[in-house]
């Protein structure tokens, strides 16, 4: 399956069809669901996955994380 990335305004990136997501420190995280939400605000406590924290830090400047999705 091809990999698709959808950027959600003021939210995460929805990633479909990826086997793993590489976080900012270079660690690989396997995806466990058909679509995953990757943190773009840089403040998730479950990085690289979104945990909704962007909604409580919208006043702060967004801090994009480095994201690389590996195609499956």
């Amino acid at each position: 399956m091809s990999c698709q990335v959808e950027i959600c305004p003021d939210g995460p990136a929805l990633v479909r069809g990826a086997d793993e997501v590489i976080d900012a420190a270079g660690r690989a995280h396997a995806t466990t669901r058909p679509v995953v939400a990757v943190c773009l605000c840089g403040r998730s406590q479950r990085a690289p996955w979104c945990d909704g924290t962007h909604k409580v830090v919208t006043a702060a400047a967004p801090r994009p994380s480095v994201v690389e999705a590996r195609d499956s």
Binding site: C8, R33, A37, R46, W49
Partner: peptide, 14 residues
């Protein structure tokens, strides 16, 4: 549900 619903929120709203 922390991670699952962070995904579902975007899918459901958008």
């Amino acid at each position: 549900h922390v991670e699952a619903d962070a995904v579902h929120e975007q899918v459901a709203c958008r």
